[in-house]
Nucleic acid binder design. Structure first.
Lengths: 158, 158
DNA sequence: CCAATATAGTTGACAGATCAACTGTTGACT
DNA sequence: AGTCAACAGTTGATCTGTCAACTATATTGG
């Protein structure tokens, strides 16, 4: 056995080395994201999609039957990605998304969720919500509200 | 110009669609991580390392001259990765890290930061701290403390 | 109307991540 | 001593992400 090897979640000793409180906070945010991802990854894996693909599907569901141009999807994503074309390519290959070039502006490509995509989403809705609830069960409702407030404030920065 | 297209940072309309407060919080955390990454990416790019490579270097600096076995690095990383071997491969190729198989346990591979690695780290220390300070400048000191407390609590979950 | 510029998205080349199967090493138990 | 399981890490196959250069369409100014 190694000497006092701390768990994955906490490294109190290392925290000392972070020179500013802002850096501590940044690391906390990054670690928590990783924690959330590990929590949800099993759900996505089981259904054969990545979290980014799931995100695209949700955006397209939110956009409704009018569809959404490719780059508008990219803009709304949680994680900004320049690889939106191929992300949608993969979803199209799985028949979860359909694309169409409208005649009024032939530069655009409108994307729509298919029936299969909507079905997949509704299969995922409950497990995803459950995982989020589980992952954040340590916080009370008012703590969640406070956390959301603080994070939204952070991003309102630039 | 498109009708009322909202900015990248905020989509208040979509928030309504998230069915639980836990999901709202999860999305806030994920979005904030993406925000932080974009903030720092220029600094890392400029010095030819990825944020994960930087993380490895910092861990090795923290480990001191005793070095650290490969998988112990993986355990301490902010973002857990199964690709630690090749991550260290790349750092070794850049001469920022050195590896050695000790004779007392020839299964292990001990990793050390080189002088070049330490030099790179000290070049990065200030810009990284500045970026973190800038990214989180919207929060007061006590808000930062509260944010850290909440996030640590989240991760103490499982 | 035509060139110049801007917009929307695609493509190729390459770096990085992921998963499972594998090698070499050590410790434990007959 | 000999087998077996556990450990530490590597490797190959495959997928995904990223950046820059490119195509096609639309808009704008002369």
């Amino acid at each position: 056995m190694k000497e006092g090897k701390s768990s994955v979640v906490e490294q109190p000793a290392r925290k000392r080395l972070l020179s500013s409180r802002q850096q501590q906070a940044a690391v906390s945010i990054l670690r928590t994201t990783d924690y959330l991802r590990r929590f949800c990854s099993r759900v996505f894996d089981r259904h054969g999609v990545t979290s980014q693909q799931y995100n695209v599907l949700r955006i397209l569901r939110g956009a409704g039957p009018a569809g959404l141009p490719t780059l508008d999807i990219a803009e709304r994503m949680i994680e900004q990605t320049p690889g939106i074309t191929r992300l949608v390519d993969r979803l199209e290959a799985k028949k979860l998304v359909r694309r169409e070039r409208p005649s009024d502006d032939r530069r655009q490509v409108l994307c729509y969720v298919t029936k299969a995509g909507l079905d997949l989403l509704s299969e995922l809705d409950t497990p995803v919500r459950n995982k989020a609830n589980e992952a954040l069960r340590m916080l009370s409702d008012s703590e969640l509200a406070e956390l959301i407030r603080l994070l939204d404030r952070v991003r309102s920065g630039p």
